[in-house]
Nucleic acid binder design. Structure first.
Lengths: 139, 139
DNA sequence: GTGTTTGCAAAGTGTTTGCAATTTA
DNA sequence: TAAATTGCAAACACTTTGCAAACAC
């Protein structure tokens, strides 16, 4: 057990354990890339190439599987704004997004920057799972 | 005062002319399918198969081209909520959407049903082009 | 050991493109 | 006739799947 470098590793390990996911080498490495830094909006391809750059041998299929598993257990949130492009958001707390139409990129908007005072009731037999506000910008 | 917004009927030909699009056989036929009824959220595949059912000979590529041209001139609005699936909304006025996570379907929410009192300024050098509120429901 | 996870390559989905033939103005 | 539009099929980007080998516990 090392001293300094072990800390982020254990952080990722705890996340996986807490979520009931086996801490495999690939999942640990991807969790570190995803969570050991600031919040981000990342695509599967991006994460895969980051992994390869960091000398982590992982297949694209596994990256997809892992992102979906992380999403299922609430470690990530999937955001779709553009056809054929999925982003995964490491910030799973209540917030919203700017969507830059030209670049296809996203930026967070803190929840308190949006005043949402009225929301319709969910249709009969349904429950609201989330309210997303997307501010599309161009220019 | 009615709660239902009614779209004034307009001949498909007028719509195309007004938008500066050549009224070709395919565009006219698709415009009739899209606009000669109530508002709808339709995918390219759906529109294509409706066209075939109505004995309108049109290729899927042309359906895609047409949907995008209509969107570019403001006759339609494109909505993306689900990875790899685009919907085109014949209602281009100010309103929001329910997204049914299980079925992948959409339903309109009239603008006045959502109380949106505060929106952040667009980042330096950008302009807000639209604010979308998506109420995701399950169950 | 046993059940889970991974990698690979192949298949799938929805969309776009290149270009010759057709149609519109 | 000239320019715009269409259809086809191939190309595309992104994502999922099937299954044998590798791995975690």
């Amino acid at each position: 057990m090392t001293m300094v470098t072990v800390r982020p590793y254990r952080h990722a390990l705890d996340r996986l354990r807490g979520a009931g996911l086996r801490p495999t080498r690939q999942r640990l490495a991807l969790a570190r890339l995803l969570f050991d830094g600031c919040d981000r909006h990342i695509s599967a391809e991006q994460l895969h190439s980051e992994a390869l750059t960091s000398n982590i041998r992982v297949s694209l299929a596994t990256v997809y599987n892992t992102l979906h598993q992380f999403t299922d257990v609430g470690l990530l949130r999937e955001i779709v704004v553009d056809a054929g492009r999925s982003y995964f958001d490491t910030n799973t707390s209540d917030h919203h997004h700017f969507f830059f139409e030209k670049s296809g990129k996203l930026a967070d908007i803190p929840a308190e920057m949006v005043g949402l005072t009225k929301i319709p009731d969910a249709p009969e037999g349904f429950n609201i799972s989330r309210v997303e506000v997307i501010v599309r910008v161009n220019g």
